[in-house]
Nucleic acid binder design. Structure first.
Lengths: 215, 215
DNA sequence: GAATTAATTGAACGTTCGTTTTATTATTGC
DNA sequence: GCAATAATAAAACGAACGTTCAATTAATTC
């Protein structure tokens, strides 16, 4: 046999991407074989090479598009406000929503970096650094404005991102907590962690509280 | 050739363990071949099977001993005090010190769980859960005593552990920050995150501050 | 110093891997 | 409906994989 009835390049490629994200997230990139992936799509292994020249090209494509999506999502969600607290809240909300919505892809992007060539690793890390820099800027602005109490901007940014991204490790949709509840709790924890004097969306308690949260 | 002069089973096994931790951390379990590991040790691949019956047995041994070490370290560091703040501080300090000291082993234990059989995965997760439960207990005690402000004990415990363990991703000994500095900063962030009314080791500011950090 | 045991080599086994090549069939454009 | 093109199957490639086995030599025991 050769071309099958109803076969369509676009649909096959989309099916390959989706199956690849799921399989790599579950088994790991090295452990997933091209034959396994092909079987999941309902196709022979050779057919995959019409869409991705090598296995690593497939991985890189998934990762690059994930990072592009993350940066784009933040570009849309980023508020016009100068207020650091609102910006931090928007960052947290966008980060959690995006990562919960794409748990598998996030897993792949975080866990399989070592399977990329040096050049491609650099490309992905560049995007990641750009995304993290956005958070550092917010933290620094907040610290300079006196609304955040931050010992070390870089370290705090890393701690926050690790904490937030960690959601995908234990969160399962439909279990005890809803996405909204999780987001609310993480927002509270974030605001306390950076020593914000008020919580986002709450009335300002007129000043006196600030010093109390200073370590 | 056969047995080499000066060969010693104990030394070889120790060398295999050390090389395996480093190689798996760098390349991943699936990507590391037994021949590669043997070469690193300076031995033929067949010699490895004198010490570990299969590749997965090797991985499991590394992980189990890592988790046992973590639980044991906490058993030693755990303070006799009932004071939740001191206990939390001890937990954070022990966690960070242990994980920075064994970055590679931690990497392996966190990233290669999916390469274990179901039965062995269960064993490792049981130990991990026991360790995490210690933190949840501290947080609950603190919340009940009114010295911590915690929305959700389980969620907060996960967030804290993700945050702290994340240190191994970016921390490199000898760079900008010392272990002591990192620990101090993480301790501050932790105490703020849980809404502790005072910081560990600082004089108590006589009460009035507590409400200020409530979200 | 002979017998036993410990430690390792070297070669081989069957399997699976990513990938390439060639042939074949479905779809599309004229 | 015929030519061109798109999408796949089927088979094969050499390389690498985890693992086993028999042979061999070093160290230990008596």
């Amino acid at each position: 046999m050769a071309r099958t009835t109803g076969s369509d390049g676009e649909k096959t490629e989309a099916a390959v991407r989706e199956a690849a994200v799921n399989l790599i997230a579950r088994l790991g990139y090295e452990a997933m074989s091209m034959r396994q992936l092909a079987a999941e799509v309902g196709v022979q292994a050779a057919a995959l090479y019409r869409y991705f020249p090598t296995k690593q090209d497939l991985l890189f494509t998934l990762m690059r598009e994930h990072m592009e999506g993350l940066l784009q999502a933040w570009g849309v969600a980023r508020p016009a406000t100068a207020d650091p607290e609102s910006r931090l809240a928007a960052y947290v909300e966008n980060h959690i929503a995006f990562h919960i919505g794409r748990r598998h892809a996030t897993h792949v992007s975080n866990m399989e970096l070592r399977s990329l060539s040096h050049e491609r690793l650099t490309q992905i890390l560049k995007m990641r650094t750009a995304y993290e820099k956005e958070l550092r800027t917010i933290l620094r602005d907040g610290a300079e404005a006196g609304v955040f109490q931050v010992d070390d901007t870089g370290l705090t940014a890393m701690a926050l991102i690790q904490m937030m991204t960690g959601v995908i490790v234990w969160f399962r949709p439909g279990e005890r907590l809803s996405i909204a509840e999780v987001t609310t709790t993480y927002l509270s924890m974030t605001m306390r962690l950076v020593g914000a004097t008020i919580s986002h969306g709450t009335a300002r308690p007129s000043g006196r509280a600030r010093d109390a949260v200073v370590l």
